[in-house]
Design a protein around this nucleic acid. Structure first.
Length: 794
DNA sequence: TCAACTGCTCTTTTT
DNA sequence: GAGCAGTTGA
């Protein structure tokens, strides 16, 4: 009987799709009883004890404030999300805010999802109203879908991600005859993005040009915007900037949202940038029921425009704001909080020094470990996980390994694999960024929006159909000359207009056009999964992948594409014409597939940035070296150094019970090996707060490997082959010990994907080994020993 | 046009 | 060490 509103929206009517049999009940929800509102204008006395029962007095006080601006400054682990969730429940329930009147903004889609789930549990049957919950970007996309025509644009715009943006900029550079080497598209993109985050459009940018590079950027920016418009596309930053513009230029549109949303809640307010700040101001301007929660000590997104002043100056912007401090920490032990304080204390830019405290007791001392190199460091982590599981009863899901850069995950992965610990990597090479996935999506995007020239260019010769780079360049000139999208140019070609193409190049172009047109016709009729199926069939995509990448990799890539079906299935509940656009929007804005791939019983590997807002019983932070954390690019900028410090603080405060800090004596970053210097942040921690494992206190394996402490570590002795798996041992041996083969014909082996098989042959190859295995039901596979994760069964 | 080859750069962090 | 743009030869 519960009623909960999920994404996606129905774009035509802009109403949420309620996955519940009974929408009427939600719609007829009572409005705020007038007398209740006037009796007590800010606090409502008749609280529902159940709804606020889980909160402490300070949280309860915050949750109950019904009107006016509220700033909650909350330390880590103080129950921010909990507070937000209970407050929403409270607004919905005892006060009886009617449907559609609450707008909650979170920082990630994951946070929104989690909050929705918690709300489901919290609010009982028949009492649930609807609310809108999402990230700034997803909300803006929704607003724009509805009203962007006021800005003279089409509704079915595409959303361009970083990759697409760079493609557009490449084309711009080519057109302007600028050297890509001298003006890297990334850098230009960064500058444009920076400007957009501060709501600086092309016109305004012209006025703030500060150097020669900006001059170039200005020229690119102008052309870039024109191309986006021609392609009927918006980039991420446009979503925010255009929404602000829409509200500014069309107060009647904004008024509509004022009507709809009486209560605005923003999580992680310290991470808002200028555009988001203005957006919040616009949306809250009428009712002023703005409730923001944040922690300046956890501001870690300055590099993408987050402006810490938004939170520091909240009271200036809203002089009547109530400010509530949440300092009690419910998450961590005192031992962990001591470390957190030590790390954050020396940082600058802090207005209020929150004093974290907990009733959780002392807890286990935080451990500092030096590994010999990144592999040893990772192995220590894996060993410790195994030890804690055996001796302390932890489960795999209790552990998280956190690092500064995604690249560091690799060593961790290998170590976990060698211990047969299931893990999952958050982010990393994102699913939607894989080439084969992007290719398929490009087709779908083109079907939804034929003006999308970036997508067209991406797939015009994928799979190969005889349209080379020369022809594509010619097509671009042809289209560019008339200022039309590539697709339109193709149509003109078909209509027989005179063009620079020879018969030989013209034929494949027209065949491509016919392909797209016939698929487009199907896209208007078929439900999404069927469309996907037809598309793959028509392209012979399976055969294409298998022939381009071989049976192993081809199969894996095909698996990724098949994964898309799972996502597509979710949209079959929508009316047919909405399925494709809704799907594409989710793909663009919900960058992760966590919910799909996350295995419950797995160790989590995650960047420090992504870890914000999460918590784990046991946390390992690896790579605490100067140049990694803090990152070398931040070294000469005090603000950035502060941000790195806060990043570590965020990581430390994710831990509930146990925390491990690790660094490596040497580390190789793409080829070159360098000696690691422990992070300067470690020096800020009083030594007595840290335990350095000696002798028996760590796992026997780790203890045998290297001496603890700061003394120069010794390289691991010999190969550390575990009886469980040969994967890692194989790789180690490949580097050091020579030649003797690790697999013999007749051996039974296990592979993650193919299952069980018999080794047919094994031959040495470049210090590695090529193994041929016959898998049951899968047949013969050739694999490279160090890459194929093979486990010997007997 | 395309496959094979070579030499170069690249890594923060995310919606 | 990898992925990619640019070059070469078929």
């Amino acid at each position: 009987m519960r009623q909960v509103v999920y994404f996606p929206f129905d774009y035509a009517t802009c109403t949420p799709i309620v996955k519940s049999p009974d929408l009427t009940a939600a719609r007829q929800f009572p409005t705020i009883p007038a007398e209740a509102k006037h009796k007590e204008s800010t606090y409502l006395m008749n609280t529902n004890a159940d709804l606020l029962a889980g909160l402490n007095p300070a949280q309860q006080q915050a949750a109950r404030i019904v009107e006016g601006p509220v700033l909650v400054l909350a330390g880590p682990g103080s129950g921010k999300t909990r507070l937000l969730t209970h407050r929403i429940a409270y607004l919905i329930d005892p006060i009886g805010v009617p449907p559609y009147n609450i707008l909650g903004v979170t920082f990630t889609n994951r946070a929104a999802r989690e909050m929705r789930e918690r709300l489901e549990d919290l609010v009982g049957a028949g009492r649930t109203a609807t609310l809108t919950l999402g990230t700034f970007h997803s909300l803006c996309a929704r607003f724009l879908r509805r009203d962007i025509q006021h800005l003279g644009r089409e509704r079915d715009f595409a959303i361009y991600d970083a990759d697409d943006q760079e493609q557009v900029l490449r084309r711009v550079l080519r057109e302007l005859q600028l050297d890509e080497k001298k003006y890297p598209p990334r850098a230009i993109k960064g500058r444009i993005s920076e400007a957009k985050n501060e709501l600086i459009g092309v016109q305004e940018f012209a006025r703030i040009v500060r150097d020669y590079f900006d001059e170039i950027v200005l020229r690119c920016y102008e052309r870039y915007q024109a191309l986006l418009r021609e392609s009927n596309a918006l980039d991420f930053d446009d979503l925010l900037m255009e929404t602000v513009r829409l509200f500014e230029q069309h107060p009647e549109v904004l008024a509509k949202y004022h009507e709809r949303y009486h209560y605005l809640l923003v999580d992680e307010y310290q991470d808002t940038n200028r555009a988001q700040y203005v957006l919040v101001r616009q949306l809250a301007s009428r009712h002023r029921n703005l409730f923001v929660v944040g922690d300046e000590d956890q501001s870690i997104f300055g590099w993408r425009g987050a402006d810490i002043r938004n939170i520091l100056q909240f009271e200036d912007d809203y002089p009547d704001a109530r400010v509530i401090l949440l300092e009690q920490n419910y998450r961590s032990t005192q031992a962990i909080l001591d470390i957190a304080q030590a790390v954050i204390q020396p940082g600058g830019q802090r207005k209020r020094h929150k004093q974290l405290w907990t009733e959780n007791g002392g807890g286990t001392q935080v451990t500092l470990i030096e590994g010999y190199d990144q592999d040893d460091e990772a192995q220590r982590v894996a060993d410790e996980i195994v030890r804690l599981m055996a001796s302390e009863g932890y489960q795999q899901r209790d552990f998280a390994v956190m690092y500064r850069t995604n690249a560091q995950s690799r060593a961790i992965e290998e170590a976990l694999l060698s211990r047969r610990l299931p893990y999952y990597i958050v982010g990393g090479t994102r699913f939607y960024e894989r080439k084969e996935v992007k290719d398929v999506l490009a087709y779908l995007r083109l079907l939804a929006n034929p003006a999308d020239s970036v997508s067209l260019e991406r797939i015009i010769n994928t799979p190969k159909r005889g349209i080379g780079t020369g022809t594509v360049a010619e097509l671009q000139r042809f289209a560019g000359g008339q200022g039309v999208p590539l697709f339109t140019a193709l149509q003109q070609l078909q209509a027989g207009e005179k063009s620079p193409f020879t018969e030989r190049t013209r034929t494949p172009l027209l065949r491509f056009l016919e392909l797209i047109e016939s698929l487009a016709a199907q896209s208007r009729e078929l439900p999404l999964p069927k469309l996907l199926e037809a598309l793959l069939e028509r392209l012979a995509f399976r055969e294409y992948l298998l022939s381009s990448y071989g049976p192993d990799e081809g199969d894996e890539r095909l698996g990724n594409v098949v994964e898309l079906f799972n996502v597509a299935e979710d949209y079959t509940g929508l009316e047919q014409p909405l399925q494709l656009p809704a799907f594409l929007e989710e793909v663009a804005l919900v960058a992760d597939l966590d919910s799909l791939n996350q295995e419950q019983a797995s160790v989590t590997c995650i960047t420090l940035h992504q870890a914000k807002g999460l918590e784990y019983p046991v946390v390992f932070i690896v790579g605490l070296e100067d140049g990694i954390l803090p990152h070398s690019r931040s070294r000469d900028n005090a603000n950035q150094m502060d941000e790195e410090r806060r990043l570590l603080y965020v990581g430390v405060t994710r831990a509930r019970e146990r925390l491990y800090l690790l660094y490596a004596f040497r580390r190789s970053t793409y080829g070159r090996t360098t000696t690691g210097v422990p992070s300067p942040f470690l020096r800020d921690i009083p030594p007595h707060l840290l335990r350095k494992p000696g002798g028996r206190s760590t796992s026997s394996v780790a203890a045998a490997m290297a001496q603890p402490g700061i003394s120069p570590a010794r390289p691991p002795q010999g190969s550390r082959s575990s009886p469980i798996s040969t994967g890692r041992a194989a790789r180690q041996a490949a580097g050091s010990a020579a030649s003797s083969l690790r697999y013999r014909p007749g051996q039974r082996v296990q592979h993650a994907r193919y299952g069980e098989g018999i080794v047919l042959s094994s031959t040495p190859m470049d210090g590695d080994e090529e193994v041929v295995v016959n898998f049951k039901g899968e047949g013969k596979k050739h694999m490279i020993a160090s890459l194929a994760k093979l486990t010997v069964l007997d």
